[in-house]
């Protein structure tokens, strides 16, 4: 009996999911007049309120870019602040149209949750921070050093794996709370602090003297962070994916929010195709011919968003690293628009 009930419930839920797969998200979005975007509760540089209490960040820029593509208006976005527990439910229940919330792309999430990862907006990975005065230049010099770490996280497991693989002595000082970890490192109770490198940079910017600390070049885990949409709606998925590619393509072709109007007159066929001067790549996506022009005009290209939110000139101060374009030594790569 109980089993029967479980089966029935499961069927009901699956039934609902199947219904959701058929509804065209783009039509819904156009009808309601805005893109509902799921963001974090506040991670500096990624999605956080600025001094005017408006959402900003590299992930927020992605949602704005989608709104620009659909409505020619980057402000046609509403934000829902989601906790990490509720994010996938909110997405599959249709409470948000796109989830752009420091979500790591993993196989189980991609294949088991009824959601699809669009791409990697930000290649993150676990790194190490040490005091400059200690003269450490590589993670391989860390054998036996006291490492401040948050307990029960993948961070801890990654570090243990890395130290074991390199035959180094693993010596941790474990805390339950991220804030305690940072405090302990700052107070000198350990020599090394480890977590995702973007978070390392954000924490460093809060220190009294950020320049006394360096982040070591080694990245010991893969944390590709990217936007996510519901699985099954190819049109919406394509729009999200090509919004991301358009940001990259624009950087590659040197089209910025400042020069996009001049570029309309460019002779370069790739730029002509990107901006909709030649050919029509928007209509198959369900948007207008100049969709990419609208994105670049209002949000800018990938480099602009990166520099504005997390780049070296911001308090977060992250170098491009892996997030540079493929031709600049990174791995951000967009297929051609043709």
């Amino acid at each position: 009996m109980k089993k029967k009930l479980v089966t029935l419930t499961a069927t009901a839920i699956l039934g609902l999911t199947a219904v959701s797969a058929q509804a065209a998200i783009l039509d819904d979005v156009k009808a309601k007049g805005y893109v509902q975007c799921g963001v974090t509760g506040g991670v500096p540089g990624f999605s956080a309120p600025d001094s005017n209490n408006v959402w900003t960040g590299i992930e927020v820029d992605f949602c704005r870019a989608m709104a620009a593509a659909v409505f020619n208006d980057a402000e046609a976005v509403r934000y829902t602040s989601l906790t990490s527990q509720e994010r996938f439910t909110a997405l599959s229940a249709g409470e948000v149209d796109v989830l752009s919330r420091t979500t790591t792309w993993t196989m189980s999430r991609d294949t088991q949750l009824g959601i699809s990862f669009v791409g990697t907006m930000f290649y993150d990975g676990q790194g190490f921070m040490v005091r400059k005065a200690d003269g450490i230049e590589s993670a391989l010099d860390l054998s036996g050093a006291a490492i401040c770490i948050e307990s029960g996280t993948t961070t801890e497991l990654n570090a243990a794996d890395y130290f074991a693989a390199n035959g180094m002595e693993f010596n941790t000082v474990v805390f339950v709370d991220q804030d305690e970890v940072v405090k302990a490192y700052e107070d000198g109770r350990c020599d090394v602090y480890t977590t995702d490198s973007s978070a390392l940079a954000a924490e460093r910017s809060k220190f009294a003297n950020p320049d006394d600390h360096i982040i070591l070049p080694e990245i010991i885990s893969k944390e590709p962070l990217g936007p996510v949409v519901r699985a099954g709606d190819t049109q919406w998925f394509n729009l999200a994916r090509w919004t991301y590619f358009a940001l990259l393509e624009a950087e590659e072709l040197g089209v910025t929010s400042a020069n996009v109007d001049e570029m309309l007159g460019s002779d370069n066929p790739a730029i002509k195709r990107l901006l909709g001067v030649e050919g029509d790549f928007g209509t198959p996506l369900g948007v207008t011919k100049d969709w990419a022009y609208q994105i670049i005009k209002t949000v800018g290209n990938y480099a602009e968003s990166y520099e504005r939110n997390v780049g070296p000139s911001t308090p977060i101060g992250l170098e491009r690293g892996l997030n540079a374009l493929w031709k600049d030594g990174g791995i951000q790569y967009a297929p051609p628009i043709r």
Partner: peptide, 17 residues
């Protein structure tokens, strides 16, 4: 995911770099 007074303070503590 609502930002009441305490959560608003916490958010700004974390993000107002």
């Amino acid at each position: 995911g609502m930002k009441d007074l305490l959560e608003a303070v916490k958010t700004k503590n974390d993000t107002a770099l």
